[in-house]
Design a protein around this nucleic acid. Structure first.
Length: 273
DNA sequence: ATTCGGACCTGAAAGC
DNA sequence: TGCTTTCAGGTCCGAA
């Protein structure tokens, strides 16, 4: 479910609540989300204080004192909840952190169980996922350089976390519509002007999605259970056969690597070699 | 070397 | 109504 805006929204919601809290215990109800090795390391969290939360791509980092960090990925349906320990625990809640002098606890729930939590040394945690630059931090010059010598389709590249980190299926489609570029465009055909338009579109769409606190189409909720508002601003994603907001031609859908891509065939003309 | 399908899971919605 | 199929904000792996 979550891409950069949803992950960032989750972190912004959690940070003021978790900052400074000391771990007293944890419950692992479904060990599958952490490796067996990690289960051992997790015990080291007892007595540690949360110093802060960070995002890198779609990863969530929870930093503790004494050089420990949790590295978490929500995948499709993962969700963090900060709630009263008296609230009922449903069957999809897999991991719980409890804190000193607090009635609230941090829960990780994940219907599809794709998500993951692992524990690392803070000094090493970022070397684990091999990720491209942050879309909202990368300069145009570096962005342009990323494309040098690359092959393949434009949308596939935007989804490649190695290439750039944090964009997923919804925002890739929205960015391409904003930039008026076809998802199947071979990247070597892109010129300087188009790359600049793409870079601007990427920043525009992601910042707007952040402003509206993410997209809640199906599952996404922040750590207070609150939904995002960007779904009412989507222009192509999930809009098959609905008239394009720019030109009124019906939005089309195609399959790219097993995933749906929504686009306007009039606004986003396919480039030929 | 990219690209594809399948795998990992569950549940909602659509199709028949 | 009820059973079956399809689909889903992600990523990894192995095979064409």
């Amino acid at each position: 479910m979550p891409e950069l805006p949803e992950v960032e929204t989750t972190i912004r919601c959690l940070t003021p609540k978790l900052q400074g809290l000391e771990v007293t215990s944890f419950k692992l109800r479904f060990p599958g989300i952490v490796g067996n090795k990690e289960e051992k390391i997790l015990k080291k969290l007892r007595g540690k204080k949360i110093t802060g939360l960070r995002r890198r791509g779609k990863w969530i980092l929870i930093d503790f004192d004494s050089d420990l960090s949790l590295l978490c990925h929500l995948k499709m349906t993962g969700q963090f909840l900060f709630c009263s320990s008296k609230d009922p625990i449903d069957k999809h809640t897999h991991f719980i952190l409890c804190f000193k002098d607090r009635k609230e606890e941090l829960r990780f729930r994940d219907v599809r169980k794709f998500g993951s939590i692992s524990c690392h040394l803070t000094s090493e945690v970022l070397s684990f996922p091999q990720l491209g630059p942050e879309p909202l931090e990368v300069s145009f010059y570096r962005f342009r350089r990323l494309f040098q010598g690359r092959r393949g389709r434009l949308k596939s590249l935007l989804l490649n976390q190695n290439f750039i980190a944090g964009i997923g299926n919804i925002y890739a489609d929205e960015i391409l519509f904003e930039a008026k570029l076809h998802p199947l465009t071979p990247v070597f055909l892109l010129g300087e002007d188009e790359l600049r338009i793409l870079w601007k579109a990427m920043r525009f769409v992601l910042r707007k999605a952040l402003k509206y606190r993410g997209t809640s189409i199906r599952d996404f909720k922040d750590a207070e259970g609150k939904e995002g508002d960007f779904q009412s601003h989507l222009r192509v994603y999930g809009k098959e056969s609905i008239p394009c907001s720019r030109c009124r031609k019906r939005i089309e859908r195609l399959r790219l690597g097993g995933r749906s891509s929504f686009f306007c065939s009039r606004c986003q003309k396919e480039k030929r070699c």
